[in-house]
């Protein structure tokens, strides 16, 4: 039996720019898995893919926008969320998905993330967290765990990492979850729920970076996945303040917030375009 059959295509090929595949992500990198899960979730959620756009910033995962066979935008560094906000406000019919990395969304774009969540813009943010700046050579990032070695912290990171779900929760996101690429089915379900959630939905995906993070911390890609298998605990509705990333103690995964609150457009319409004002304008 020959396992290779090129006449049949991969089930996701219709959403991929196959002429650009194989992609640039390194062997063992988890971004491809997160990206595939995102595409599967888009298909499974039943949203109109003609009215779905993907926005990404700069970094390894920022390349995602270039591989998807939808309208997609590769924006400047850190500005994926402001760009997505603009898209959503200009055309509220669109389903806007931001697919980007931790450095782009939380270091240079940290403020944009906070204010996107505060306004509760109706977009979905998928953040691939590989715990360092992978594309530029493995420098310390805002999400690097305490004590981890990187190019710029050769003896270990003296600072603690960002707790991304806590930040999203505190800023007012209406859907917050965290999964790893090993929990692929849960992650896909979660991205699907996030797409269908009305409001600012945030999914953090932990992903190995064997070439830049793993190499300096003696952690091959499969070691990272084993760590995800052994050192994680699924605890839905855990309080976001308990979600620090510390693989010694264990990392909590799950869905933490799923609420409904007025979105940016709802509030804008209620404040700046109340029905009586529109009627007055029509009469005039």
């Amino acid at each position: 039996m020959t396992p290779t059959n090129k006449s049949i295509n991969h089930p996701l090929d219709d959403l991929l720019r196959t002429d650009r595949i194989p992609h640039i992500w390194c062997p063992g990198c988890g971004i491809g898995t997160a990206f595939a899960a995102c595409l599967t979730a888009m298909k499974a959620s039943g949203i109109d893919l003609e009215k779905t756009v993907m926005v990404s910033g700069i970094g390894c995962s920022g390349r995602g926008a270039g591989y998807v066979m939808l309208d997609s935008y590769h924006t400047t560094h850190g500005r994926a969320i402001p760009f997505a906000t603009g898209l959503k406000l200009a055309n509220p019919e669109l389903n806007v998905v931001v697919f980007s990395g931790d450095g782009d969304l939380f270091a240079i774009g940290g403020n944009h993330f906070i204010h996107g969540a505060r306004r509760n813009v109706d977009i979905t943010v998928v953040c691939v967290n590989n715990l360092n700046y992978g594309m530029t050579g493995g420098q310390v990032a805002a999400t690097t765990p305490l004590g981890a070695k990187t190019t710029t912290t050769p003896v270990g990171n003296p600072d603690g990492p960002f707790n991304l779900p806590l930040m999203a929760y505190a800023a007012g996101a209406s859907y917050v979850s965290r999964w790893t690429i090993l929990h692929t089915r849960d992650m896909t379900e979660s991205i699907k729920d996030a797409l269908l959630n009305r409001g600012f939905a945030f999914v953090e995906v932990l992903s190995p970076c064997p070439v830049n993070f793993g190499r300096r911390n003696k952690e091959k890609a499969l070691d990272s996945l084993r760590l995800y298998q052994e050192k994680t605990i699924i605890k839905n509705d855990a309080h976001p303040s308990e979600l620090d990333i510390d693989f010694e103690r264990g990392v909590t995964l799950g869905k933490f917030v799923d609420i409904e609150r007025p979105t940016c457009i709802d509030r804008y319409d209620a404040t700046c375009r109340p029905p009586e004002m529109l009627e007055e304008e029509k009469a005039a």
Binding site: P3, T4, K6, P22, P27, G28, C29, A221, L222, L225
Partner: peptide
Amino acid sequence: IVHILEDRCKGCGFCIEF
């Protein structure tokens, strides 16, 4: 039936391990 698109593979071994 497993189909493998061999020329796309980068040999990470995730499928074999899991």
